[in-house]
């Protein structure tokens, strides 16, 4: 089995260009389908932006107003009055960065141990870790809340990130990755008298790029978008991340739609921009997760 890293590099893309047209016929049909489908994918985002620049009357007009009479950018300014946007943005960024860094460290170490080290109870521990993947996150909420409260971490960034630092999924991902690496590398080092930590640090860690970037991307998406848990542990609105801020705003009956739409654009914008900048890496990284 080749390593995922090697596979990803697309070494199989051996299709001869010459026979393409013959083998696949015209690409016209593919383009038509994909353009229509892509438009359907993008439509809600476009409509969201249009609504965010409309007046309340235009949002509820019949027929719909596709081109607002004037573009109301002040809807975006109004967002800053109705939610503590910047402090929530800060919280979102903080929790995301902390989770990415800590998860990568913990999951890489544990994943490596589960894949390549021998110790009593390994099977049992791995089974326990994997079992929690199956459990809906709601199951944990009551107890996790109590734990975080007992630790005195309510309303703190530490409280929001705590459970999310320990990821069964990330551990599993890294374990699968290490399983795919050839053993010969380690054996040579072991013969040279390296201890397990040195082997891990010097030989294996430098190879983890694709897996680590896939993990990082997933953690970023998960952390930014997560709602339920931060909602539970942050009782002060300026100590909550953006997802909670937006949900709270949506629950205010008097907030007008364009402002709500503007808030939802602003809330998603950082992650969308990051995605557009890093799209190639993101897509390759995520495709990696699908390879066993």
């Amino acid at each position: 089995m080749t390593s995922p890293a090697v596979r990803m590099s697309g070494s199989r893309r051996a299709h001869g260009r010459g026979s393409e047209a013959k083998r696949y016929g015209s690409h016209l049909f593919a383009h038509i389908v994909l353009v229509l489908g892509g438009f359907a994918m993008a439509l809600p985002f476009l409509w969201q932006i249009i609504m965010s620049l409309s007046s309340n009357a235009e949002v509820t007009s019949v027929p719909p107003t596709f081109f607002p009479r004037e573009l109301r950018f002040d809807n975006y300014l109004a967002v800053f009055d109705v939610m503590p946007f910047f402090s929530q943005l800060g919280v979102s960024i903080w929790i995301t960065v902390i989770r990415v860094v800590v998860q990568i460290i913990l999951c890489t170490f544990a994943g490596y141990a589960f894949a390549r080290m021998r110790f009593r109870g390994r099977g049992l521990m791995l089974a326990l870790v994997l079992a929690i993947l199956m459990v809906p996150s709601q199951v944990y909420l009551l107890s996790q809340y109590q734990i975080v409260q007992n630790l005195g971490l309510l309303d703190t960034v530490a409280g929001i990130v705590a459970p999310g630092l320990f990821s069964a999924f990330g551990t599993f991902l890294m374990r699968q990755f290490f399983l795919g690496l050839p053993v010969e590398l380690e054996e040579a080092a072991r013969l040279d008298g390296a201890n397990p930590f040195q082997i891990f640090w010097k030989i294996m860690l430098p190879l983890t790029g694709p897996a680590v970037s896939a993990l990082a991307i997933l953690v970023v998406l998960f952390s930014w978008n997560e709602l339920l848990w931060p909602l539970v542990v942050s009782t002060r609105s300026d100590a909550a991340p953006l997802s909670v801020g937006l949900a709270a705003l949506a629950g205010v009956p008097t907030v007008n739609y364009p402002v709500l739409m503007a808030a939802s654009v602003l809330t998603m914008a950082p992650i969308l921009i990051l995605f557009i900048i890093l799209q190639r890496r993101v897509i390759e990284g995520l495709a990696f997760t699908g390879i066993k």
């Binding site: 909420l141 009551l142 809340y145 409260q149 909602l231 539970v232 949900a247 629950g251 009956p253």
Partner: peptide
């Protein structure tokens, strides 16, 4: 109506809360 609507937030947190202590 409002109680329940905002209940999402309220309620959710209610989760952890009462009774656990």
């Amino acid at each position: 109506a409002r109680l329940r609507r905002r209940g999402w937030l309220t309620g959710i947190a209610a989760l952890g809360l009462a009774g656990l202590l």
